[in-house]
C-alpha cells in the first residue's frame, strides 16, 4: 500500500464517520461542527485529486463562509427545548432502507466496469497550467463565459434577495 492509498483510506473513513454524525446527532450545533470536519475531509480529497484550486476554495468558501453562516443561523434560531426532542422524522426506517438499497446497487455496479477501475496517476502538468487554462476558459466567449456570467448573476440575485428578506420592515436595514 502506497502512502497515498493509506492517506486516502484514512481521510475517507474520517469523512464518512463525520457525515454519519452530521445526520444523526441530536444537538444541531454539534452536527454543524461535524459538518466542518466533513468539509475539511472533502477538501483533502480534492487535494488528493490534484484539484488544488478547489481544495483551497472549499476551505475558503465552504468552511470559512458557509459553515459559519450555518452556525450563525443555528444560534439565531435556537429554541430552549428543541435540542432534547428526537430529531428524526417518523419515516426514518423507510428512508434508511431505500438509501441502503441505492448505495449497495451503486457500489456493486461500480466495481465491475473496466473504465471505472482505472488507476488515477498524478497528472503530468504542473504549476499554474491548469489554473491558467481554467481562467482563460472562464472568460473565453467560445468557452465558458456564459456560465460564468450566469453564475455571477445568480450570486447577485442571492445577495439582493438575502438583504431584502432579512430587512426590517420598518425601513431600517439589518445586515
Amino acid at each position: 500500500m502506497t502512502p497515498l492509498q493509506i492517506v486516502f483510506i484514512l481521510v475517507a473513513l474520517v469523512t464518512i464517520v463525520s457525515a454519519l454524525f452530521v445526520v444523526s446527532l441530536r444537538k444541531i450545533f454539534h452536527a454543524a461542527l461535524w459538518l466542518i470536519v466533513t468539509l475539511m475531509g472533502v477538501a483533502i480529497i480534492f487535494a488528493l485529486l490534484e484539484a488544488s484550486f478547489f481544495a483551497a476554495v472549499q476551505i475558503l468558501v465552504y468552511i470559512g463562509a458557509i459553515a459559519i453562516i450555518l452556525i450563525f443561523a443555528i444560534m439565531l434560531t435556537r429554541n430552549i427545548m428543541s435540542d432534547e426532542e428526537v430529531q428524526i422524522n417518523r419515516s426514518w426506517g423507510i428512508v434508511l432502507f431505500l438509501v441502503l438499497v441505492f448505495t449497495v446497487i451503486f457500489i456493486s455496479q461500480l466495481s465491475s466496469s473496466d473504465v471505472i477501475n482505472t488507476i488515477l496517476i498524478p497528472l503530468e502538468f504542473q504549476g499554474q497550467e491548469s489554473i491558467i487554462a481554467f481562467g482563460e476558459g472562464l472568460l473565453d466567449p467560445a468557452g465558458y463565459a456564459l456560465p460564468f456570467e450566469l453564475a455571477s448573476l445568480l450570486l447577485l440575485g442571492a445577495l439582493v434577495g438575502g438583504v431584502y428578506i432579512a430587512m426590517d420592515k420598518k425601513g431600517g436595514e439589518n445586515k
Partner: peptide, 25 residues
C-alpha cells in the same frame, strides 16, 4: 510549494474566525 498559496492563506486565515465562534458558544 502550493500553486494556490494565496487562496490557502485566505482560507486558513479564515479558520481563525471558527475558533472565535467556538470559544464564544
Amino acid at each position: 510549494d502550493l500553486n494556490v498559496a494565496l487562496l490557502f492563506i485566505l482560507g486558513v486565515g479564515g479558520l481563525g474566525e471558527l475558533g472565535v465562534i467556538l470559544a464564544g458558544w
